[in-house]
Design a protein around this nucleic acid. Structure first.
Length: 975
RNA sequence: GGGCGGUUAACUCAGCGGUAGAGUGCCACCUUCACACGGUGGAAGCCACUGGUUCGAUCCCAGUACCGCCCA
């Protein structure tokens, strides 16, 4: 089959993916006899929409690892699935309903959930379709969803267990409350950011038994409206200014209440007036203070953040911001407002809604993080231990700090959410305030009965934090059972713990730490051995990609390409704030005036992997993507070349011929130093690649492959092979002693043996490269391999029923490294480069062939001659013991001197030589200085000193020859 | 306030105790029979700054500046 002239990815991708999938190549390996098992859990994407660049990046890494281990013959599982993403998904669906003027309450819980399930089907399918476009190879037959029946059952089971152990509890606590969503959220779902605000100084008059004006205390606050819920004023115990007032009362303005002045070291004497109001129901720190001082909190806000019945009648029903204005105005009217100053403060906002989070006193469920369990260790303690002991390893390891720091300061985890979409909490309430945590309603009733309660039970309407079920992912997706380990299955036995978790640092707390905690606590096993933490994909300016900024890229658009109008439309529809549209459109049109060209999946994947340097975020650079698309094209065309030269030819693959065997001798296969060199280099690359996979250094791995293919195989070996396949034309004299003229029969057969060896090397190296690169760029390699492999003797069947996916991954055979051949080629390259740079400096057109005279070992020069002639565009190569006396430019390569026989500008050549002499003299001065330094000679390692001496000798000999050459020019011109 | 990372060519990034690298871009030449998504040659860097350790520092250590992130 003739290959297209250039690589056209679209059709190839469309064709291969269904073949791989339908043939079951992605299926989990369940061979219990194998000792190497490799498993990756897909961080389940949220069913809130579509995949973004971060997913593409994350998945390119995981798929490369999976394909690599699968080819290595390991039992392999890449476990896919999606996350119900409680809040996020509920918001998406609510917004859709909103557009039709319907609220979720209009529908009712049951009907609303039906709508969400519909959305889940749609979104889930979109995501898995996109993953397929990325060429990912998870075991789709094992796809899970966090709200599947099986996973839900495990959620209930763990909840009941933890509750029984006293590690899940219900309590009235101050929690982060989102007044828009009307639900509690966890600490992690609150984003604290500094914003501009004000600091109000308010005077609280001292209460005096006689009713006279006894002065006042001035408190500073950023939230004046919360004063309605004040229960005290506090000062620092060592603050002399206020010491005499501690224990007295002040009158709370606007409210008809007296509150005490207390002393607590929490107060910062230097901040504001050194005098702080205490509002335990609306501030986390004040809650602690109130608790220490036995002050009952007064909650003044309703759940939607309006003043409630505990506030003065005037303010009741006002929104918190409206109330703030009213309170400030009234204080001012009363002459109690001392000052208002601009002030920067940290404002907590809900990460989903952006509204200001209100600390709110509510009944919620919590997981106890630091309370010792029945085995004496807390959940957080276990998570710390797993990492401290080295059972779990972070890559790069500095993330351990982040992990430890968080776990060492962890608060109990609020897991209840006042939402509808999610796992409903398995707790049932009696009419009289008792509750029963059970696997199901029947069990709850049984418990109630034993408890002496015979009335009705009502299930807790709340659902669990979406991360609760995510925390169970490492074992819930493997169909863990409550009876485990008595009842298990092969996947669970083989793949818990999994090998590596590949994730961004943004979810170390949300997800990674919680998986460790829950998996370790419930199963006693760690969830995974390695945590490979990669950076975030940012846009070209280093900005985080977000819909509202309008800088998101869809990985599919980089694969297929997109017209500018479509891109603008995509970026500007469905905005939270439609006002951004104009700005986004302008920016997009400026950045992509012609839209985005399609690069294909392989190029995109290769780009992601190349950019995956550890410990840093990625500014996504489309030009890099273009460069790697070009690389794919290069590989494609190199394959075309090999096929053109090898298809239908004898590629030296007679069945009984193995490298090193007797049959592999000069009469059948005559490998040149160039052949042996490329094979030698190949071993080194294979070796490097193995190391880079083990170290998760995908950037170096991609580069090793890139450089081998382009710089070694294409730029050099293919060019050298052309010489071997097309014997030198008679115009280039053969080395001395071999003569020109008719080839003798023996020479003819030797030539054939050489060409056979060349073809064999061409095709075998290429075939190996395709296997080597397949985990990174699966489509192009598969397509090419189908044609290349039969020629390389790697595939018996040529009907297309075999796949590169199932081939063995190349393994380095370092005994095939060949230093002699490497040195031979290195010197040849030097000579060719020397000729090329001479040509360049002499401004010789690439089209012009020029003659060369070489002086030095004539046998070696003779062997190099045909290669030199072809690669340096020489019309003829002659050898001589002494270079002719001429003005022609000369390059010195080791012991060899190469002269291009051309007419030149003598002045220019003299200048060139002088420049070169100056450069080398500079090096000589540096080397001499070094070697003249007693400290260096005495203390530096002998090898380093010897190396320096050798350099110096080389420079000295070079400069001498250069001077001779320059001298000859001067003599020549003077004569 | 605590912690982490970054600063290397115009851009995006590797690297590393002993000769500073790649891709893209730029300049010149070349449509040579795999590839113009190409070839050959070339220009381009006080490796942020200041000290220290060392025979030797872009690299290790300390500090400074700037940029970014996380936590409180």
């Amino acid at each position: 089959m003739e290959l297209a002239k250039s690589f056209e990815p679209a059709e190839i991708e469309r064709r291969w993916y269904p073949i791989w999938e339908s043939r079951g190549y992605f299926a989990a390996g369940l061979d219990t006899a194998k000792k190497d098992n490799f498993c990756i859990l897909l961080p389940p994407p949220n069913v809130t929409g579509t995949l973004h660049m971060g997913h593409g990046f994350n998945q390119a890494i995981m798929d490369s690892l999976t394909r690599y281990h699968r080819m290595r013959g390991d039992n392999t599982l890449w476990q896919p699935g999606t996350d119900h993403a409680g809040i996020a998904t509920q918001i998406v669906v609510e917004r859709q309903l909103d557009a039709k003027g319907i609220s979720r309450h209009d529908l009712g819980r049951e009907k609303f959930l039906e709508k969400v399930w519909e959305w889940k089907e749609y979104s889930g399918n979109t995501i898995t379709k996109q993953m397929r476009r990325l060429g990912t190879s998870p075991d789709w037959s094992r796809e899970r969803f966090t709200m599947d029946a099986g996973l839900s059952k495990i959620v209930t089971e763990t909840f009941v267990r933890l509750h029984k152990e006293g590690l899940i509890y219900r309590g009235k606590r101050l929690v982060n409350w989102d007044p828009k969503l009307l639900t509690a959220v966890s600490d992690l779902e609150v984003v604290n950011e500094e914003e501009d605000g004000f600091l109000w100084h308010i005077r609280y008059p001292l209460a005096d038994a006689n009713g006279k004006d006894a002065g006042s205390l001035t408190v500073a606050t950023t939230r004046p409206e919360t004063m309605l819920g004040d229960v005290a004023v506090m000062v620092h115990p060592e603050d002399e200014r206020y010491a005499h007032l501690v224990g007295k009362n002040v009158v709370l303005p606007l409210c008809d209440r007296e509150i005490p002045v207390i002393a607590d070291s929490y107060v910062d004497k230097e901040f504001g007036t050194g005098c702080v109001k205490v509002t335990p129901a609306h501030d986390f720190n004040d809650w602690q203070v109130g608790h220490r001082h036995g002050l009952a909190p007064i909650s003044i806000l309703t759940l939607d953040a309006r003043i409630n019945e505990h506030g003065p009648a005037k303010y009741r029903g006002m929104d918190r911001f409206e109330a703030r204005k009213a309170v400030v105005a009234d204080l001012e009217a009363a002459g109690l407002l001392d000052s208002v100053k601009p002030h920067k403060l940290v404002v907590p906002r809900g990460d989903r809604t952006g509204v200001i989070i209100e600390p709110m006193l509510t009944d919620q469920w919590f997981v106890a993080m630091t309370k010792p369990g029945t085995d004496g260790t807390s959940i957080a303690g276990k998570a710390l231990e797993c990492v401290a002991s080295g059972e779990i390893r972070f890559v790069p390891e500095n993330w351990v700090n982040t992990y430890n720091q968080w776990l060492n300061n962890i608060q109990d985890w609020c897991i209840s959410r006042q939402l509808w979409w999610g796992h409903q909490i398995p707790a049932w309430y009696s009419d009289d305030g008792r509750f029963y945590v059970a696997h199901d309603e029947a069990e709850a009733y049984a418990q109630a009965k034993r408890d002496g309660y015979t009335g009705g039970l009502e299930r807790d309407p709340d659902v669990l934090d979406t991360w609760y079920s995510s925390a169970l992912w490492p074992f819930s997706t493997l169909d863990w059972t409550p009876e485990w380990p008595a009842k298990s299955n092969p996947a669970l036995d083989l793949y818990l713990p999994s090998t590596v978790l590949v994730t961004g640092f943004d979810i170390i707390f949300f997800w990674v730490a919680r998986m460790v905690m829950m998996t370790k606590h419930i199963t006693g096993k760690i969830p995974f051995r390695d945590v490979y933490v990669h950076g975030l994909i940012r846009d070209a300016e280093g900005q985080k990609m977000s819909k509202s900024k309008g800088n998101v890229l869809d990985p599919i658009d980089l694969i297929d390409g997109i017209m500018i109008d479509d891109l603008v439309k995509k970026r500007t529809t469905g905005l939270m704030n439609p006002k951004d549209a104009a700005k986004i459109e302008k920016r997009t049109r400026r950045e992509y005036p012609n839209g985005i060209p399609g690069f294909g999946t392989d190029a995109l994947r290769f780009t992601f992997l190349s950019l995956a340097s550890p410990g840093r975020d990625i500014k996504f650079d489309m030009q890099r993507c273009e460069g790697y698309r070009n690389f794919c094209n290069k590989l494609w065309n190199a394959s075309r070349f090999v096929l053109m030269n090898c298809e239908g030819q004898d590629c030296g693959l007679a069945p009984d011929v193995k490298p090193g065997s007797d049959a592999c001798n000069a009469t059948y296969l005559d490998f040149s130093p160039a052949d042996r060199w490329i094979v030698s280099r190949l071993q080194k690359v294979e070796h490097e690649v193995e190391q880079h996979f083990a170290d998760y250094r995908f950037d170096l791995l991609a580069r090793a492959i890139y450089e081998f293919v382009w710089d070694e195989y294409c730029d050099w070996y293919l060019e050298l092979a052309k010489v071997q396949l097309n014997p030198p034309s008679p115009s280039i004299p053969l080395p001395e002693g071999e003569g020109s003229g008719e080839l003798a029969a023996g020479q003819q057969s030797r030539l054939e043996a050489q060409q056979r060896a060349t073809r064999r090397t061409l095709v075998r190296v290429l075939e190996t490269v395709l296997r080597l690169a397949h985990p990174l760029i699966p489509f192009i390699t598969e397509e090419l391999w189908q044609t290349v492999a039969p020629l390389a003797g790697r595939a018996e069947a040529t009907d297309g029923s075999r796949s590169l996916m199932l081939q063995a991954y190349p393994k380095a055979d370092l005994s095939r490294c060949d230093p002699v051949a490497e040195a031979w080629v290195a010197r040849l390259k030097e000579m060719i480069n020397a000729c090329r740079s001479l040509r360049g400096e002499m401004n010789i057109s690439p089209a012009q062939r020029v003659p060369l005279v070489g002086a030095g070992d004539t046998a070696i020069l003779g062997a190099y001659a045909p290669y030199l002639a072809a690669l340096a565009k020489l019309s003829e190569v002659t050898t001589a013991n002494v270079l002719p006396n001429s003005d022609a430019p000369v390059q010195i390569v080791g012991e060899f001197r190469l002269m291009l026989k051309i007419e030149i500008d003598v002045a220019a050549e003299k200048e060139r030589l002088a420049r070169e002499i100056a450069r080398v003299e500079g090096e000589i001065i540096k080397a001499n200085a070094k070697l003249g330094n007693a400290g260096f000679v005495e203390r530096a390692p002998a090898a380093v000193v010897a190396q320096e001496q050798e350099r110096l000798e080389n420079f000295n000999s070079l400069v001498e020859k250069l001077r001779v050459q320059l001298g000859r020019l001067q003599v020549g011109t003077e004569a």
